[in-house]
Simulated scan of single mutants.
Amino acid sequence: MLKLKGNAMSLNLAAPRFSGPVDPKPVDLGVLPSELDGGLASRAAIGLVVLATDQTLEHEFRALVRQPGVAFYESRVFSDNDITTDTLRAIGPRIAPAVDLILPSISLDVVAFGCTSATMTLGEEAVFAEIRKARPNVACTTPVTAALAAFKALDVKGIGLLTPYAPQINENLVAYFSGRGVGISAVATFDRRDDRDAARIAVASIEAAAEQMAAAPGVDAVFISCTSLRIAEAAAGLEQRIGVPVTSSNHAMAWHCLRLAGINDVVPGGRLFGLPSN
């Protein structure tokens, strides 16, 4: 207890709880029996590469990947706050060293690279090649890969694409998806080019934008691109209000990680989380 006397402070230590004689040596119980179980990842272990600037992805994965026996383990990869084509390309050679840090010598079922725009800039196969330098033959996904799988599972023909990116990056993303046979019926951006700002876009703003996008002709699903945008936990309620499926970079990637790992549990998370991966 601290006691103040005038301007001086003194420390009054409490009396020891035990005042009797103490045996100087504890009882040695030796080596006790123990059993090994499957650990936290007894059903599936997911590796996750997260951008150094990302404030959202891990939080949303914790909300969506919570099945018993399933665990994910992260590594961070350096990235610039400014989202430009050049800064996105620079991430490529950093992916393999980041993957190498995730549970060395322990098997992973899936490795996911958590950046939508970098995947589009580098190309999915280039990202997979980097991942497999550290984890040969592992199942891989990215937000782009997962989104394409989600669109197929949901059987959507035209999507509304909502991003925080610069218009040039949006144009590239539209071209990338279109080249993979995805119809883009509407596109919009918040034009927040600093990843720190993208993470702070209010959920209400994202929901309002998605609602406006869902009303555009030809939109039968909304895809909210960028792992920094916070929408995964609100996706189920939002799609009920606007009448079309809603998914996002993190939402789709969490679902795809589970399905690639052989986890087919139907769990809360919106329409997508009730579907298998085709």
Rank of each mutant, 00 (worst) to 15 (best):
residue 183 G to E: 08
residue 215 A to I: 08
residue 224 I to N: 09
residue 266 V to W: 03
residue 159 I to G: 00
residue 182 V to L: 10
residue 224 I to Q: 03
residue 278 N to C: 08
residue 183 G to D: 06
residue 275 L to F: 06
residue 267 V to T: 09
residue 167 P to N: 02
residue 190 F to H: 09
residue 271 R to W: 08
residue 206 I to D: 04
residue 212 Q to H: 09
residue 160 G to D: 06
residue 224 I to S: 08
residue 232 A to S: 07
residue 171 E to A: 14
residue 278 N to S: 08
residue 159 I to Y: 00
residue 209 A to V: 14
residue 179 G to D: 11
residue 177 F to R: 02
residue 206 I to H: 04
residue 223 F to H: 12
residue 175 A to N: 06
residue 163 T to I: 00
residue 272 L to Q: 04
residue 175 A to Q: 08
residue 259 R to G: 11
residue 148 L to D: 01
residue 147 A to R: 01
residue 271 R to T: 07
residue 208 A to P: 08
residue 206 I to A: 02
residue 200 R to G: 10
residue 201 I to E: 13
residue 245 P to I: 10
residue 166 A to L: 12
residue 255 W to T: 15
residue 188 A to E: 07
residue 190 F to D: 02
residue 242 I to D: 03
residue 242 I to K: 03
residue 221 A to I: 14
residue 138 V to K: 13
residue 157 K to T: 15
residue 170 N to R: 00
residue 156 V to L: 14
residue 251 H to L: 12
residue 196 R to G: 14
residue 244 V to K: 04
residue 252 A to P: 11
residue 227 T to S: 04
residue 177 F to S: 02
residue 230 R to N: 13
residue 173 L to E: 02
residue 160 G to R: 06
residue 257 C to S: 00
residue 227 T to C: 02
residue 194 D to T: 05
residue 228 S to D: 13
residue 193 R to F: 01
residue 149 A to H: 11
residue 208 A to Y: 07
residue 228 S to H: 15
residue 235 A to G: 00
residue 218 G to P: 03
residue 141 T to Q: 14
residue 199 A to D: 00
residue 168 Q to T: 10
residue 262 G to L: 11
residue 177 F to T: 01
residue 233 E to Y: 07
residue 176 Y to Q: 11
residue 219 V to G: 02
residue 209 A to Q: 12
residue 182 V to I: 15
residue 193 R to W: 05
residue 149 A to V: 09
residue 181 G to Q: 07
residue 229 L to C: 06
residue 210 A to Y: 08
residue 202 A to C: 15
residue 271 R to L: 10
residue 246 V to Y: 05
residue 260 L to G: 06
residue 275 L to C: 13
residue 222 V to R: 01
residue 203 V to P: 14
residue 255 W to V: 15
residue 247 T to P: 10
residue 200 R to A: 15
residue 224 I to G: 11
residue 186 A to W: 12
residue 258 L to I: 10
residue 151 F to H: 06
residue 150 A to L: 09
residue 199 A to S: 05
residue 227 T to L: 03
residue 255 W to E: 12
residue 259 R to I: 12
residue 163 T to M: 04
residue 140 C to Q: 06
residue 173 L to S: 01
residue 227 T to K: 00
residue 242 I to G: 03
residue 256 H to W: 07
residue 237 G to E: 05
residue 217 P to Y: 09
residue 250 N to I: 15
residue 232 A to D: 02
residue 206 I to Y: 01
residue 158 G to Q: 00
residue 211 E to D: 07
residue 264 N to H: 06
residue 233 E to V: 12
residue 278 N to D: 13
residue 146 A to G: 08
residue 193 R to L: 04
residue 223 F to S: 10
residue 243 G to V: 11
residue 188 A to G: 13
residue 264 N to A: 11
residue 234 A to N: 14
residue 192 R to M: 14
residue 200 R to I: 14
residue 268 P to F: 08
residue 262 G to R: 15
residue 165 Y to G: 12
residue 201 I to G: 03
residue 182 V to D: 11
residue 255 W to Y: 09
